[in-house]
């Protein structure tokens, strides 16, 4: 069959479109496989008792008591360590985001904003070693501690919170600020009470996503909190969070440990799916 030139061009157009669509499919296969495997391996272990009972770090069945244990301590440790990281990073990130959006429109602001972007690209394991180096310098005995991990996670979260705050506040219409000034409201109150509350949903979304990401971190924790099957035992001692549970139990000798790793993974995946969906809905209602 002989095609004229236009026919060939049209067919080529369809072929390229098909190839591009194929790229999307190829990229989504691993996601589908990952979600499927996690549900397959994790769904039958994920139960209330798995979520609250203490870990079974050896993964050995004692006669009469053959449970995989649970991840209660790890969840508790994650809440405490990530919570402290959030308490440090959210105020810092929001304040610097306010500066960048409200005051830093000049060269200095652009430089800070630029390097904040650059910081988001810093490997998390390097941040972990930085925190380790600082803590070793301060107190060698507590080089590996929950607090150390919180600081590392906070450093990882700050650039994200800063940039989302900045972007969120920039979406606030200038007329609101001008209206406030016209009423004689001082600038800091205009920022705190009007601009901040208008841009609130984006800031909260950014903070929640940062917390979510920190909850699944492992690399910086390997050189800061280390690991402890007891979960959280004090700010000055090592702690075992959810992410490291997955890492250490994934390569564990016993199938019970591997099951626990899948259970913890499924929990993180469900949280991730829920939060990213909620974030999407929250932002759409607000700005679309």
């Amino acid at each position: 069959m002989k095609l004229d030139r236009d026919g060939r061009r049209r067919i080529f157009n369809w072929v390229v479109s098909g190839l591009c669509f194929l790229c999307v499919v190829v990229a989504l296969v691993p996601l589908g496989s990952l979600l499927y495997t996690a549900f397959l391996n994790g769904s039958h272990i994920l139960s209330i008792s798995f979520l609250i009972s203490p870990e079974n770090p050896v993964g050995i069945c004692v006669p009469g008591n053959c449970s995989a244990g649970g991840i209660g301590p790890a969840i508790y440790a994650t809440i405490v360590v990530v919570g402290i990281a959030a308490l440090i990073s959210i105020p810092v990130g929001v304040l610097s985001g306010i500066y960048l959006s409200e005051y830093g429109r000049g060269r200095l602001g652009r430089v800070i904003s630029f390097f904040t972007d650059v910081m988001t690209g810093t490997p998390s394991i390097v941040v972990g070693l930085f925190a380790f180096a600082v803590f070793v310098y301060i107190d060698r005995a507590h080089a590996f501690s929950a607090l150390d991990g919180s600081v590392a996670l906070a450093i990882i979260m700050v650039p994200t919170v800063t940039r989302t705050t900045e972007e969120g506040l920039r979406l606030v219409p200038n007329s609101l600020r001008e209206g406030a000034y016209a009423l004689g409201i001082p600038r800091y109150r205009a920022v705190l009470q009007i601009v901040l509350s208008t841009g609130r949903s984006i800031i909260i979304t950014g903070a929640v996503l940062a917390v979510m990401r920190a909850s699944g971190e492992v690399a910086p924790l390997l050189v800061t909190t280390l690991f402890s099957p007891q979960g959280f035992t004090g700010l000055g001692s090592p702690a075992g969070l959810l992410g490291p549970v997955i890492f250490f139990y994934a390569t564990g000798a016993s199938p019970l440990l591997v099951r626990a790793a899948w259970g913890a993974s499924l929990l993180l995946i469900l949280a991730m799916l829920g939060i990213s969906l909620a974030a999407r809905i929250a932002l759409r209602n607000r700005f679309k």
Binding site: L95, S96, I112, M119, A133
Partner: peptide
């Protein structure tokens, strides 16, 4: 108050630059 608020946010924002510099310096030292 206005100036205080501005300087607080400025100091925190400058802290980010200081942090990035500290990364390099602390790692070199360690």
């Amino acid at each position: 108050f206005d100036l205080t608020f501005l300087s607080v946010t400025l100091v925190v924002a400058l802290g980010l630059l200081a942090l990035l510099t500290a990364f390099v310096l602390v790692l070199i030292n360690a």
